[in-house]
Amino acid sequence: MTTTTTETETQFAQQLFDAYQTQHALTMADFTDTVADEDAAYRVQAQLTTLKNQPVGGYKVSLTSEETQKMFDAQAPLYGAQVSNHFLAAPTTVRLGQLMTPLVEVELVFKAKEKLSPDDSLEDLRHKTTVAPGLELPDSRFADWFPDLPKNLVVADAAVGGLVVYGEERDTDQQFASVDAVATVKCSLTHDNEHLKDGVASEVLGNPLKSLHWLVGKLAAQGKSLTAGQRVSSGTFVLPPFLTAGHWQADFDQDLGSVQLDVTND
């Protein structure tokens, strides 16, 4: 992958950053030809991350189910770098005004206990990480983005990164006796005590550890790495609803616990 950004890519990254700061949404149609391919989109994302001038706290992996890949005409996942202060420990409160047009996803959030290698097996990753229940709040700098935003614009926009709320973190190899057990996690999502959706971890590339493995390999191919302390929101169990004010809760089985999030209208 070429790492040198073109003038057009640099300008696009600045426009995304301005939208990120001002919350004035961009119009999709104005940018459909701005990024030539996925490599260009990742160059824009890298420039956008630099403009944020904050530590990278981790990554989110998107398009991890057959359903979402079809929606965005993709054959593989994609990732977005997330700054550290966008990872929030539950329980927490978020203002709708912090975001633009956010969704709600149910995820497992892994944290690297040491630098991860593309040579790591799924079993290695089970030993080298912690795991926590999570709610991810995807968001975009484009108006009317879901589910119509072109894939390369999703990539450029930090994989429509918003916020990641995570629950109690435990050693993955203590929480799960095997790699296969990770795929069997089930979750229920509620809003103001109204049941909305149920999901299962196998929706995430068959196993969320496969999502983590994909990310480590993708980063390595771009000369990057996942280092100790960085977190990964590994992919949604459910097709996401839009975020609204109220009390959101995701309850996970297998003693993973719950994640609670209050959203205010301001």
Results as ranks from 00 to 15, higher is better:
Leu149Gly: 07
Val164Gly: 01
Glu136Trp: 03
Glu136Leu: 03
Thr172Val: 12
Val164Glu: 00
Ala158Pro: 00
Asp124Gln: 10
Glu123Ile: 02
Glu169Cys: 03
Glu136Phe: 05
Val179Phe: 11
Leu125Thr: 13
Phe176Lys: 00
Gly161Thr: 03
Pro150Cys: 09
Glu123Ser: 15
Val179Pro: 08
Glu123Pro: 02
Ser140Asp: 10
Asn152Ala: 12
Tyr166Gln: 05
Leu122Pro: 03
Val164Asn: 03
Thr129Ile: 06
Gly134Val: 07
Ala132Leu: 04
Asp144Lys: 14
Thr129Trp: 01
Ala156Leu: 09
Gly134Cys: 05
Leu149Phe: 10
Thr130His: 08
Phe176Val: 01
Val155Asn: 01
Gly167Ile: 03
Pro150Asn: 12
Ala156Tyr: 11
Val131Phe: 04
Asn152Asp: 14
Pro150Glu: 10
Pro147Leu: 01
Pro150Gly: 13
Glu136Gly: 11
Gln174Ile: 05
Leu163Gly: 00
Leu163Asp: 00
Phe146Ile: 04
Lys128Gly: 01
Phe146Met: 13
Gln174Tyr: 04
Leu149Asn: 06
Arg126Tyr: 07
Glu169Met: 14
Arg170Cys: 03
Asp139Ala: 05
Ala156Thr: 10
Phe146Asn: 11
Thr172Asn: 11
Trp145Asn: 06
Asp157Val: 12
Leu135Thr: 03
Pro147Gly: 07
Val160Ser: 14
Val131His: 05
Trp145Tyr: 13
Leu122Val: 11
Val164Cys: 09
Val155Arg: 07
Val131Asn: 03
Leu153Ser: 13
Ala143Ser: 14
Glu123Cys: 01
Ser140Glu: 11
Ala159Tyr: 00
Val179Gln: 09
Leu135Met: 13
Glu168Gly: 10
Asp148Trp: 06
Asn152His: 15
Ala177Asn: 13
Leu137Ser: 02
Ser178Cys: 10
Leu137Glu: 02
Tyr166Lys: 04
Leu163Arg: 11
His127Phe: 09
Leu149Arg: 08
Asp157Ser: 10
His127Tyr: 14
Asp148Arg: 14
Pro147Tyr: 02
Val154His: 06
Ala156Ser: 15
Gly167Thr: 08
Glu169Phe: 06
Val131Gly: 04
Asp148Ile: 08
Asp171Arg: 02
His127Asn: 13
Leu125Ile: 12
Leu122Lys: 12
Val160Ile: 15
Val179Arg: 08
Pro147Glu: 06
Pro147Thr: 08
Lys151Arg: 15
Asp124Arg: 04
Pro150Ile: 13
Val165Arg: 01
Ser178Trp: 11
Glu169Arg: 12
Asp124Ser: 15
Asp157Trp: 09
His127Glu: 12
Thr172Pro: 00
Leu137Tyr: 03
Val165Thr: 11
Trp145Ala: 12
Lys128Asn: 06
Gly134Lys: 03
Val131Ile: 13
Tyr166Val: 05
Val160Ala: 14
Asp144Phe: 07
Phe146Gly: 02
Gln175Arg: 13
Pro150Lys: 08
Phe146Ala: 12
Pro133Cys: 04
Asp173Glu: 14
Leu125Glu: 09
Glu169Gln: 15
Gly161Arg: 02
Lys128Ala: 11
Pro138Asn: 08
Asn152Lys: 15
Ala143Asp: 14
Pro150Arg: 09
Leu122Arg: 11
Phe146Leu: 09
Asp144Asn: 15
Val131Met: 04
Tyr166Phe: 15
Val160Asn: 14
Pro150His: 08
Leu122Gln: 13
Pro150Trp: 09
Leu153Glu: 11
Val155Tyr: 03
Pro147Phe: 00
Leu125Asn: 09
Gln175Asn: 08
Glu123Gln: 15
Leu149Lys: 07
Gly162Tyr: 00
Gln175His: 07
